[in-house]
Design a protein around this nucleic acid. Sequence first.
DNA 1: ATCTGCAAATTGGCTTGACCAAATAGCGCG
DNA 2: CGCGCTATTTGGTCAAGCCAATTTGCAGAT
Lengths: 223, 223
Amino acid sequence: MTDTRRLYQQTADRVRNLIATGDYQSGARLPAERELAQQLGVSRPSLREALIALEIDGTIEIRMGSGIYVLNTAKPSGNGRSLGESPSELMQARAVIESAIIVQAAATMTERTLATLRATLDVMADDIANTRKPLEQDRAFHLIIATSTGNTLLVEIVENLFDERHSPMTAGIRGHFETTDSWTSALTEHHAILAALEARDPLAAQAAMHSHLTASGRRWLEN
Amino acid sequence: MTDTRRLYQQTADRVRNLIATGDYQSGARLPAERELAQQLGVSRPSLREALIALEIDGTIEIRMGSGIYVLNTAKPSGNGRSLGESPSELMQARAVIESAIIVQAAATMTERTLATLRATLDVMADDIANTRKPLEQDRAFHLIIATSTGNTLLVEIVENLFDERHSPMTAGIRGHFETTDSWTSALTEHHAILAALEARDPLAAQAAMHSHLTASGRRWLEN
DNA sequence: ATCTGCAAATTGGCTTGACCAAATAGCGCG
DNA sequence: CGCGCTATTTGGTCAAGCCAATTTGCAGAT
């Protein structure tokens, strides 16, 4: 299986790995750009792009004329949750919160909102059929449900958690996640959620949402 | 004043500005790299570095062979959460989310965490007895429960929602809220939550937390 | 021996130019 | 009118070079 992601992403991961492996501890200085590029077998511009990605997510610090330094490897809280666990952490948070929200939503679900949800899934199906990534529809589906609670804070939280999937830290995994198969599964789960809402069954909706997000997290990690 | 930041950062800001200004709306395609670079007066590699930064923070999407596209123009929160927001909305959000969280927490509650919670409530009682506002203890109580899920994202959310109560908008109401009577009631409710956790009863804990936060919101508004 | 200061070496910052690969547009044929 | 191939457009990557900030090291002074 060849990695089809862009070179700078692959390179950023490899450098992250060098750091995680302990080859370069916190505070250590990485080899010079020219040397590191040659060592990794990529050109200097490509390495630079990777370094910028790492600089943005706080993995390294670049000091002009001095060198490239590894930043805080230190983990704050009691349990050593590594960066690699963050996607599962994210999806767990979404599962907990959105499952709670949909209980509220099911109670006040209007026919009009249901129609909007149906339309969203229709577009989603069309996207998948045409091998387009239905990311916007996925986002919309979850936001519509949150919005139906009438609580803007809850909407913001759902929004931020969803968009978190595309944060620097998780960027490297994106390519694998978005396969046609996984989107088809996601669509089926969305339909199950919608069915529960149509039946005005809060507990069924809660279960469907929780199932969807845990499954989604599993798909994300397994690829 | 000359901008001393790296060129890719300045360039990324300029492109962000092009998007924010409306020159390129959501979904629009930016000029080709070669053209855009010339238009901004930078080299293509430098522009590419800027584009990678923008891609990472979700401002744009780069499609190989196709072009550079503007993503969700609807930039979420940041700080624009002042309008539709109200104290009751805040407390409702906390009720929904923290009730869901405590179900998770009850499942994995350790004796050590319970001891910490008891100690927190002891200090809280002492504070109230001495007419001090036990704000820190209140905050700690809720954060400890969130932390016990082991999910840092959930902790952050609870933290942000709690601190939201002290934002400029809500500051005016605070004085009334913090009476000895209301804190005594809050303490009693906290003890009820703790009792449910000690009994390892997730549903009772959920009910106690929900009851506490809605009551807390009511106290907040009625004064 | 130690300190100071300047110059060389090191290292990141940026540019130019070129070629490859994916996606798209356009055209010609059936 | 539609299908399929090709040319063009556009992002992806590499190579080599020069500039600017920083560090290093040595020579001269104290």
